[in-house]
Computed example of a mutant assay.
Amino acid sequence: MIVANSSFLDHLQAQRSQYRYKLPSRPEAGRFIDQLMRLLFPVTQDCQSASQQIEETYQKLHQQLIHLFQPLSATLPASPDVITDQFFEQLPAIYDNLLLDAHAIVDNDPAAIGIEEVVAVYPGFYAIAVYRIANELLRLNVPLLPRMLTEYAHGHTGIDIHPGAQIGRSFFIDHGTGVVIGETTIIGDNVKVYQGVTLGATHVAKSMAQKKRHPTIQNNVVIYANATILGGRTVVGHDSVIGGNVWLTNSVEPYSLVYNQHQTDVRLKPLDDGEPINFVI
């Protein structure tokens, strides 16, 4: 039998009293988001029961959300029942926005076969969907749970979208791995983002917590792979294209094309006897 370290256990007990919040269960939060997605988009085999018993599934999700809110009751602006009702009142609008996001992927990705494939397997769509759900909960002043949901999606997709970001209609993330969208980012309509894009802050000091730290991306902007756009004052004007691997900390005008200039040096090709010759271009 292992003898417990009583002083360490006393320390853990004392530490518990210092926590500001009690949190919902992380596995239960993940189950809620996945079951809600199955209700909204029953395109795969494991969604059939949700689609066949839609009213029952809807009521179960309602109760699940109330249960997730219970540990947060003391910090909610209203009772868990009221906040849950308010969230489900917004679900039709969330669903409509998600359909626009899905169609944006279908319309812009030549590899996409149809909306069923997008909602079932595309990590970009899944991350956007979880963000939109979490963002609505944040708008209802629910603490902590929205971030738990987006971090759950982050773990599954490699796409990190803070629930506090403001993202417009018809948002398209292609591939997606490594995308980071910070808390105070503002993104307009019809924006396309590729893998490895960072919309981040130039400073990470705690004193900046209540300030706009992340960029504004206006309508119809395309941001290609591994571009980094930083700063709360940085605005990418509408209808601009930001090329791959660009590092941007200053605003650009609408209709701008920003790209990295590169130089191609032609290597020398050795002859059989070892003497090099130049390629002629």
Rank of each mutant, 00 (worst) to 15 (best):
Y122K: 02
T198L: 06
A104H: 07
G155Q: 04
L40H: 02
S7P: 00
V43M: 06
A50L: 12
L36P: 00
V142R: 01
A74K: 14
I229T: 07
A111Y: 09
I281C: 06
S6I: 14
T57K: 07
I115A: 08
R26A: 15
D10Y: 03
K212H: 02
I133Y: 04
R20S: 14
L271S: 15
Q63G: 06
V3Q: 11
A153Q: 02
L144D: 08
E117F: 02
F279H: 05
V106F: 12
A78R: 05
A120H: 09
R213N: 03
S256W: 05
S207T: 15
E56H: 10
G237M: 01
F279M: 04
S73P: 00
C47Y: 08
I223Q: 02
Q13W: 11
A78F: 03
Q210W: 06
R139H: 15
E275Y: 13
P276L: 10
D107W: 06
L137E: 07
N260W: 07
Y194Q: 05
Y95T: 12
H203C: 09
Y122V: 12
V236G: 01
A104S: 15
A120L: 11
L40R: 01
E28S: 10
D160M: 06
L257W: 09
G274T: 11
M1W: 09
V180F: 12
N260C: 14
G182E: 08
R132T: 00
Q59K: 09
L12Y: 08
G231A: 00
N278I: 11
T198R: 05
Y95P: 01
L9V: 14
D101N: 01
S240G: 04
Q59I: 14
T249R: 05
P71A: 12
Q64L: 07
I105F: 01
P215N: 03
S17T: 13
S207Y: 08
D81N: 11
Q48V: 14
K192P: 03
F279L: 10
A78C: 03
Y152M: 00
A165V: 09
I54L: 08
Q263H: 14
M208E: 15
G176F: 01
V179G: 05
S256G: 06
A225H: 07
Q210E: 13
Y131Q: 03
Y58N: 09
V222G: 04
H103S: 09
T157K: 02
I54H: 11
I54Q: 09
Q195F: 13
G124K: 08
